[in-house]
Design a binder for these strands. Structure first.
Lengths: 156, 156
DNA sequence: CACCTTGAGTTCCAAAAGGGAACTTTGCTA
DNA sequence: TAGCAAAGTTCCCTTTTGGAACTCAAGGTG
């Protein structure tokens, strides 16, 4: 399989990965959620080379995950911001961070903590069911074919 | 930055990505959650080349995300299964699928649906707060430095 | 017994992607 | 006039993929 075909697979994992399934892209998004907006600051904080960064930002913009908007006119300078579609990736980032906190934290503990503004407490993200609000773990889920499933073979 | 340094960064995103931040790795895990276990079946379902698959599986095993266990002795054959550490990636996969369902679904709709065994309903995954159980979105979260944060500079 | 099949890899080579560093462009500032 | 800053591009060389063929061990088949 070549990556240019990924976005056309009948699988939401594959389609999502066609947008964000790349280390640099996820790291760029991490910074974006921490309110980094400018080319040079992404470069400085990530240690990414400029031409890779330019490519990733261009892709994120073309996918509608970020927008490139001018923040000054003379000379023209642009910054990158998350769109609503990009903000929806928050759950993906939180899930990734949480797994790292559980399984990859160093001796000194977590690098970041999260406070829930609504209740004021430090918290861990928990996946729950939109219907009953109960916790959802791997064994609680049964996977069924949906309307967009491939015809005969079972692909996810 | 080279990838071999990623796992040593003081950031749970970076550390998680050092394990799963690769398209093929995530697709292998998707299949693993759908109960695929054998080398040939991963190959067939993903269209991945054999030597890339071998490398990814070896890495997942060395990270403790999967285990390689024999399922027959003569001739010796092995299969790959998720460990508890691997099963904990479920939230990451669910978050990725859900974003794809929201933003990348084709005209025919979702390829897969999820049923919550506990309540019996088809559901969407929702991220919630471990303390108050309320929904958590990007704007509800305040990020603070934790004990494992880098000294002076602020990196996530 | 000679040969074919299966599962799980490994090896080889050409093509694509990535890392590093220097160069470009536009206008501002000393 | 020179220097600087932000945001990219270009060039070149190294590393990683994709694709296909080859290996190995143990059965099964005629």
């Amino acid at each position: 399989m070549r990556w240019d075909r990924l976005g056309r697979e009948a699988c939401s994992v594959a389609r999502t990965l066609s947008v964000i399934g790349d280390r640099w892209t996820l790291l760029v998004l991490r910074e974006a959620f921490l309110r980094v907006r400018r080319f040079e600051e992404f470069e400085r904080r990530l240690g990414i080379t400029r031409h890779i960064l330019a490519g990733r930002l261009k892709q994120l913009v073309s996918e509608g995950v970020m927008v490139r908007i001018p923040y000054q006119v003379r000379p023209k300078r642009y910054e990158y911001r998350l769109t609503p579609k990009g903000l929806d990736l928050h759950m993906v980032l939180m899930a990734i961070v949480h797994w790292g906190d559980l399984h990859m934290a160093g001796a000194r503990g977590r690098p970041k903590l999260f406070k829930h503004r609504a209740c004021g407490h430090l918290f861990d993200p928990v996946l729950s069911c939109s219907v009953c609000r109960g916790t959802v773990t791997a064994r609680d889920v049964r996977v069924l074919d949906g309307p967009g499933a491939p015809e005969a073979a079972s692909e996810s």
